[in-house]
Design a binder for these strands. Structure first.
Lengths: 258, 258
DNA sequence: CCGCTTCTATCGTATGACTTTATCGCAGAC
DNA sequence: GTCTGCGATAAAGTCATACGATAGAAGCGG
């Protein structure tokens, strides 16, 4: 349970105390250890676990409030919010999900969203890309092609590839979904680690997307990206099924660096 | 400058002090009064404007940190973050944008996102809707059809219509984008208030979407929703141009209730 | 059995002191 | 003259404490 999102430096500092408390509470909520009831039972527990002042605790709660995980109402208590309230697309919330066991339903939802969004992003990227964008995407692709299948550098390159496409789409709102897309990527990579075949086979697909973007062919870029996402979803769901069938805890996890 | 998002109760309590401070700071950042430089000049100013303790101030900063608007680092200070870091799709961040002058670029981006996402949501809704979903969507449609064009109840019904469709899509990740879609709706309604013709004409489009969803015709629902979004964007951009040409400040704003 | 009062738990706010961390500038060495 | 390193310093972070307000529960009285 020690995976951290290393896509981009998460907004809240995990080195600081309040950040650690926030994460602890968030994971407890996301895993379901705390349902929609009181959250305060942990107040004393946390005090004993890590001696933490009320300040740090409150600031952690404020962070969770801002992300919709809890609802603090004066005098009545601070309750874990129901799932519909969560800002599931918040980068931190997404990354906290990696601390919990894979939730097949949620991963499927994320992939579905990605399936809708990323082809559109690719289309826009094809229409609006600058030469600098091309350079970024191409560099990322080279990183993927050159690196060893599941090396960290390769994974970073993969994420950079997709991020660069979102960036090239020149849409600030769309850009915010890049973290969600990258989260699905990380789930894929986490779950199907070791399946080198799937990885190698996905390389030409990436190249095709790149070429379509270079050609400014929006329709083609969109279609190819859609294919890429669907393939990724299929292999991921297959892996997820396998892992579920064997043992959940054995899923290899990526080490967090930096 | 007194518009509040009334789509759903925003996660952070605006009655509380820290919420007000957070909003004040957020608006200052979003409007650009504070760029990417120090934010602390306000610390003293705020102390004088509303006497606010360090506690409230810090908790407000934590909220903004959680939403990516600021970055606090020891010794260097608390800086407003660059726009790429903002969680633009966060409901609160979206609502704070209503406090600022309309940013045409951002509205266009939001509509673009909506253009990609909402047709897909309609498709899923058509495929997965239950009879309860139909009841909700239909009730919202009736509210739109029966109410006066720009009455508040009508606007609420309009928002409920779109929200209900997202809800029927049965996808938690997608659901999080409902707030963004509703924000575009609000921008539309804010900007083209008074244009009764456009509103009346949009009614049949809504009904067509509803019927397609009832028929479980995903393709049709998607196509009709796409048309609806495009129409909305066109009239909105036209209004925006007009308003820009005449006077920005004269844009009528919706009163916030509850 | 119901309604009112009281009581308590819990959040919100305020304040002051101390700690940690990172930046900047000065002094010394090469 | 440039580089290195150490310490001064400023700002955020943390802790402890206190008080106020009130929602909700418990107890009391009718």
């Amino acid at each position: 349970m020690r995976v951290r999102d290393f896509s981009r430096p998460t907004t809240l500092n995990p080195d600081r105390l309040f950040g650690q408390v926030a994460q602890k509470l968030a994971v407890a909520i996301i895993t379901g250890r705390v349902k929609a009831g009181e959250l305060l039972p942990n107040e004393d527990d946390l005090r004993s676990e890590i001696s933490v002042s009320r300040t740090a605790y409150r600031e952690a709660v404020k962070i969770l409030t801002a992300k919709g995980l809890v609802e603090a109402r004066p005098k009545s208590g601070t309750r874990a919010a129901s799932r519909e309230r969560w800002n599931l697309l918040d980068p931190d919330v997404l990354s906290w999900h990696f601390e919990a066991d894979p939730n097949e339903r949620f991963i499927r939802d994320l992939f579905e969203l990605r399936r809708f969004v990323e082809p559109s992003a690719a289309r826009l990227a094809a229409q609006r890309r600058t030469s600098a964008d091309i350079a970024r995407i191409e560099a990322a692709y080279r990183g993927m092609a050159d690196g060893a299948p599941y090396a960290e550098a390769t994974i970073r390159a993969d994420m950079a590839f997709h991020e660069a496409i979102f960036s090239a789409a020149q849409n600030a709102a769309l850009q915010c979904l890049a973290s969600a897309v990258i989260a699905t990527l990380q789930w894929s990579l986490l779950l199907k680690t070791g399946d080198e075949v799937a990885y190698i086979e996905s390389l030409p697909d990436h190249e095709h997307v790149l070429l379509a973007i270079i050609d400014r062919d929006g329709d083609l870029a969109s279609a190819r990206m859609a294919g890429l996402v669907i393939d990724s979803l299929n292999t991921t769901l297959a892996s997820l099924g396998t892992h579920y069938a064997t043992e959940t805890g054995k899923i290899m996890r990526i080490k967090h660096t930096k």
